[in-house]
Design a protein around this nucleic acid. Sequence first.
DNA 1: TCGATCATGCACCTATTCTGCATGGTTATC
DNA 2: GATAACCATGCAGAATAGGTGCATGATCGA
Lengths: 310, 310
Amino acid sequence: MIDARLVTLRVFARCGTIGATAELTGYSPSAVSAQLRELQRVLGMQLLVKDGRGVRLTATGRFLVAGSDPLIAQWESLRAAAMEAGDQVQHHFGLGGFSTAAAQLLAPLAATLRTTRPLLEVQVLEADPARCFDLLIAERIDLAVIVAMQSDTYGEDDPRFEQTVLLDDPLDVIIPGDHRLASRETATLEELASEPWITEAAGSTYHSLFTAAFTAVGVTPRIAHEAVEWETQIAFVGAGLGVGLLPRLAPLHRAENVVRLRITGKAKPTRRIVAAVRRGSIASPLIQESLRILQVNANRILTARPDEDL
Amino acid sequence: MIDARLVTLRVFARCGTIGATAELTGYSPSAVSAQLRELQRVLGMQLLVKDGRGVRLTATGRFLVAGSDPLIAQWESLRAAAMEAGDQVQHHFGLGGFSTAAAQLLAPLAATLRTTRPLLEVQVLEADPARCFDLLIAERIDLAVIVAMQSDTYGEDDPRFEQTVLLDDPLDVIIPGDHRLASRETATLEELASEPWITEAAGSTYHSLFTAAFTAVGVTPRIAHEAVEWETQIAFVGAGLGVGLLPRLAPLHRAENVVRLRITGKAKPTRRIVAAVRRGSIASPLIQESLRILQVNANRILTARPDEDL
DNA sequence: TCGATCATGCACCTATTCTGCATGGTTATC
DNA sequence: GATAACCATGCAGAATAGGTGCATGATCGA
């Protein structure tokens, strides 16, 4: 119910360029430009100034964007309360999440919702955690499942979001089937310190998880290979190229020559998976139901996994 | 920045019928109907139900309207703060007021603003106090000058408005030039209790002022004639038909055979004139400036009047 | 200097949204 | 109980807001 042009301005405040805003909102750059020009005309405020080959927000623009946070939150809160009070049905619901979450958590959620709310049109978008937040601001999605990252630009107390912990996903180690520890069920990171490790490229979302796990026990692993997808990493391990960390939520399927070991020892690395929504919308019955379903599914997967894989 | 359809819903919540909403917002009935239907579709809420030959709000609808009050207020507040912080210029400004106010206060205000803010497009609407509030809700006007009425449906603490006292306009008495008291400068209501009085029709906006003035001193006046406009009332008095109450703000011009006397005694009847704005917008520099101008003008008229008329 | 990047204006098109009129259902009046 | 008045709504047509795609100009890095 908040004017789309104000939402566009908020997205721009995140992106900094018209082009990126267009990409994120789904408009063309011309449309974004026209929208922001129109917004300035209607409000009688100069919100943008030219800056080099781009544009940037004026002080007034930044003020307006910052001040719009509680406005958005209040609207979300009002809508959620009205939906709850009136027992009404939503007809579109956007979900976002990173790859593992999208496959393991969001897909089942979407399937469940399809049966419990047949009239609801669910859309799932796979996206980076960072992009998920942007999509929330852009109102392209209503709920995001992401890995908590303190290195993120979005703190837990960001006025635009509310975050709830879904689960702490333990990191297991995967090793080749012919590895010296392959018959074990658990291992410590210290035992594996000298192994050739497979991880993601530095700077990626999950690389920091990797390093955090090892700094906790005070060893520096040797990074031998890099993979983007879990599938690739599993294949690398299966080929005997090294060992890797795999979240328990990520399925091993029945990969050839790969064994999953639980990590024991003083540091049990986990990744915290949280659900994020626009502030105010958490009370919405649809979101409440989704969070319940997500938590149930997460726990089910977590407890089922050992029997399936180990 | 709040969706126009939500504003329309709020107006409907006031009016109760689609037709009245259309009249007040300036749309056609079909447009209002379509807007509200669209609003329900977008929100996925049933807001209206058929009720006889009309429609009425559902519980959800009432909930949404009530909850939208702080939302509107917050937006107004944000816009006002941004305008102030950024020293920006508005380009449209709607004023509303009852007849005397429109002529004596709003016209000079509009004239002043035309010189101080040449780019500003000022629109003045003459309307009942009650209609002024409706016009504020409908966002047709931004500031209204009205006579405070405790009998009104809009209390001083209405979450939709903020009201500031502009002045307490004393009520004078006007009598024929050949009246026995015509040479006096002051009179008491008790002295005039037995006179034939001229006032507005019972139930009208100013009639309650009239009765309130007399109940304060404990006498019941004899109502001989009724007039709608001050001009008419003055003419009646000039014709010797009776006496009447005239706010000091209302000009006597140089009416034939009419004398204005100040009222003295234990009860000095006044009508309280207040400015009303949408809650949150009071901090806007344009509104602040307007209130200043209104107050200066009001005081100027009030002090100048005796020399001009008496 | 050249290419890349970014915003913006313009022509054109699409889709929303408004108006005016006709319709159907509901209430009041005679 | 018939008729008139009233109210909301649907539809066809028209206006308009708002979109896209391309060309342009301006700026920055190589």
